[in-house]
Design a protein around this nucleic acid. Structure first.
Lengths: 222, 222, 222, 222
DNA sequence: CATGAATGAGAATTCATTCAT
DNA sequence: CATGAATGAATTCTCATTCAT
């Protein structure tokens, strides 16, 4: 967890490595990334052990280390993958359609991510809560840029009167918070309701409620 | 982190211990709890080491272990304290006043917690993301009960037509998510905006935006 | 073995540490340094294991690590001690007396070191053969300085006609080589002669021969 | 490094192996031996890794292991080669000519070895310093025999009055020590003088000085 | 000949924790 | 209360080596 700079570099630059392209390679690496996601989500970076991950992947510890030279490299790879999927929906947010449709779609996409990949969401959350030691550089550049572009979309809507006097940036934070909470804080929600996003009705309610509140608020309209 | 049962028990039952009276004792314990919060927030349970905590408290490792017999005991104590402060605002949510005032007050209270004790919020988040292994029993009982009581408050407002067709429970989740995100994900927000809740204007904007959106939505009325 | 700079620094600057002065501390540390010398001499830096050293010191591996945080730190400490004793005799070489007496004394001193502390000599030799990765900075400064001062002593003798047309610096290298060979290459000498410096007669012969050859050469004088 | 007996056997008995004929084979083997010499010289037996050696030879680890079944076998092969070249000059020392010429020639030959193959010299030195675990049997037989024969040469010269009252055996040790020090301790000499045997003048001075001192001593005649 | 996969035996640390003083 | 000693259990990572293709 030391060399931040190099860590980041390898995050951005997909290193081709010395012939890492066999089918079995790809298979095992992906199996390990999945297993790692499970373990990192549950135990955090420090709490996760190489052995737990290997066991989760039904692989030997040494074999894991054959594919990923270090715990950190594996962690990096996991984060890399998450980042891509985390950012993707945001890119799709366009000015084209009307705000309700667009924002709805974005909320849908974020919720879908939370529903389909709650563990990835947790790994991401963990990384950020812990200070984003690894991915901060990326947040400061890539995420910042995208966000800036997207807030102009919202401002444009505001100029057209299609959207109220909210803070575009803060509004984005709300969407993130709201959609991710169901993945990240699932154990709390589950403890309190006995349900989770796996439950179809619960999922539908959650999404609908989120959209309704964020779009129209709780206070009824005249 | 093994004996969950006993751990929980000690969370609920305030063990009187073998005479902890002295002022110095109380002082040192509180100093350690604070330090532990800092370290647990940054490194998670596993990543936190007794020595880091001791150093943070300008105390010796051995001395720390004099006050808290184990890392887990210290963690428990930290969580205990957080829980109380986490729940407090919720208790204050009453049907008495009108929803706008009440909800505003609750959002204010939650944001204040995030602003004043972001590290506690992070420890809490970490615990829950990691599966709430320690505090789940509490969530399933105490939090569940309170939440149930409070949702009836909201339902009452709905019956009176003061509030729209949102899901009371889900609405509460939104408030939690929204208010806590500024503490838990502060490093992301900071990386993207260069600001945080420590910034007065930023704080004001965040709170105002949260209230406005949650109460009235983004789509302008009529 | 990474941070050369810091390594060197700690070689030069005797770090006082956080209260390392108990009797038991000193005792154990010295016991470990001795044991480490034995093991490093025999196996080199890489071949030496913390466990071997601990066993040699009749101590547990973990206890060793209580006294020296890392293998490198222990190695450094060992080298530090050797250096002092390696340099000492050289400092004593003075212009005062006549060359025969002075040089004889120096040869005596160097042989004594080889006889009394052959293992230290080997550790030193090993470090240098391996590229002097750790102590090079010291050689480039301290040793260089001393050597320069001492060669002027020899040059002075040459000016007075007390010494022949030899290269002062190279002459020093010969003395070093000759005196150390009996320690460093003892296993070869032993394999060939069945004897070593531990053998009183052998020792006497070795020293006498060294002095005679270096002072008067093999070719008889007229 | 376990089975010393078998190791030695394979050192003495050139195992014909299962057909090593191809030119490529010979080439690769020699490339590996060279690379191994480099690595063993710098890191010692334990510090050297098969991978480092393979990389040094621009070959794959697996390929290396195709040519040499184990690290030890490779080490043995390296030592074997060195031994031959180490002993050769000694064999040439004959009573025929006069001592000055003969000894000069031997010193020249030894220096040449140090100059041309300093790394081999270091590997040899390392092996001996570490206790000559592998080549001791050879020292005890072959080297011992040769040395004995050569000391009689010197004694013969002494009987003829051509040489002074030095110890023949010890005298040989001096020659070895003196000539090898420039290879083995090159990093020390380099650190102190900024030069090495690669420097033509330095080399000439070193050889000349060694000859002069060993033959005629430092103390001027008459 | 050569390469990818897999494995087992260490080795150095790290860390919580206990014991003594 | 506080500090120095000591220990045992993990944990990450390295490396030689073997297997299969």
């Amino acid at each position: 967890m030391k060399s931040k700079t190099s860590a980041v570099k390898s995050l951005l630059t997909e290193e081709p490595g010395a012939g890492r392209n066999t089918r079995i390679q790809a298979q095992n690496r992906s199996k390990l990334v999945d297993a790692a996601t499970v373990v990192f989500a549950q135990f955090g970076y420090s709490g996760a052990t190489i052995e737990k991950i290997a066991r989760e992947a039904s692989m030997s510890k040494n074999n894991l280390l054959y594919y990923f030279k270090s715990k950190e490299e594996l962690y990096l790879t996991v984060l890399q993958g998450i980042m891509v999927r985390w950012l993707a929906p945001l890119e799709d947010l366009q000015e084209d359609m009307d705000p309700v449709a667009e924002i709805s779609a974005y909320i849908d996409a974020k919720f879908k991510f939370s529903r389909m990949q709650p563990l990835s969401s947790k790994v991401w959350a963990n990384e950020i809560i812990s200070g984003a030691r690894i991915i901060r550089p990326l947040l400061e550049t890539q995420l910042r840029d995208i966000l800036e572009r997207k807030t102009t979309v919202i401002k444009a809507w505001q100029d057209e009167g299609k959207i109220g006097e909210i803070h575009p940036q803060h509004f984005m934070f709300l969407i993130w918070a709201v959609s991710q909470t169901y993945a990240d804080f699932s154990s709390q929600i589950d403890a309190v309701t006995g349900k989770g996003l796996k439950d179809k009705d619960f999922y539908a309610d959650a999404v609908e409620n989120a959209k309704r509140v964020l779009l129209y608020g709780v206070i009824p309209r005249s």
